[in-house]
């Protein structure tokens, strides 16, 4: 029994053309027993930065509260909202603070980075439970279904997908991967972030 698999749950993020998407399942379990089918693991940090927190459910809530606090402090101090890349380093250092007694979470981030010319660049990243960052150009996965997500995403993802196509790709990747994982599933939620809006869609999934 691994503590990382105690509550179940998975998150995936993908890069598209001038957009990013991040999606997760909605299951909260106690090992094989399902407790809730509306447990969200993805939280908006700013309008353009989203954070997914798969792993031990108590730490999902604790870290969400922790990041809300730290982000508010950052915003007050800097008088501007945080950029995704800076946020990735904030996540990393927050986790590394607990190097020898970690939070059992493998965060996934997705956002749009503001460029000096006023445009936006898609940004995704994931870290391990002690904050080692993985900057990826295509997609990142985490959670109990991560191995399955890797396989399906590798097959379905392609470069420069438009927001609607990216939504379809990430939704099908997640839905099909979690069906092969007993600890993930029970519905899903997808966020697609573009420069002028972020769309949230709640998906139905297999309830077994």
């Amino acid at each position: 029994m691994s503590i990382m698999e105690y509550n179940g749950g998975s998150v995936i993020a993908m890069v598209g053309k001038d957009c990013v998407a991040i999606a997760s399942d909605l299951r909260l379990g106690n090992q094989a027993l399902g407790i809730a089918s509306d447990f969200e693991k993805i939280f908006p940090m700013t309008d353009r930065v989203y954070l997914g927190l798969p792993g031990l459910a108590t730490d999902v809530t604790t870290l969400r509260e922790q990041f809300r606090y730290r982000l508010n402090m950052y915003t007050i101090k800097e008088e501007r909202e945080i950029e995704p890349e800076t946020f990735a380093h904030l996540v990393s250092s927050t986790l590394y603070e607990r190097r020898f007694g970690p939070y059992f979470i493998e965060p996934v981030m997705a956002g749009l980075q503001r460029l000096p010319n006023g445009g936006y660049k898609p940004f995704i990243a994931a870290t391990d439970l002690i904050g080692c960052i993985n900057f990826a150009k295509d997609f990142v996965v985490a959670g109990t279904a991560s191995s399955k997500l890797f396989g399906v995403a590798e097959g379905l993802w392609e470069p420069d997908l438009e927001p609607e196509d990216l939504f379809e790709t990430i939704a099908q990747t997640l839905l099909n991967a979690v069906d092969r994982d007993a600890y993930s599933g029970w519905g899903a939620v997808v966020h697609v972030i573009t420069k002028d809006k972020a769309i949230k869609r709640v998906l139905k999934g297999r309830m077994d």
């Binding site: 106690n30 407790i35 809730a36 459910a57 108590t58």
Partner: peptide
Amino acid sequence: WVDYLGTLSPVPFGAHGYGS
């Protein structure tokens, strides 16, 4: 529904122990 780890979830119904 809250467990000893500090997991909290709003639920329409819940149970603890063998009853669950």
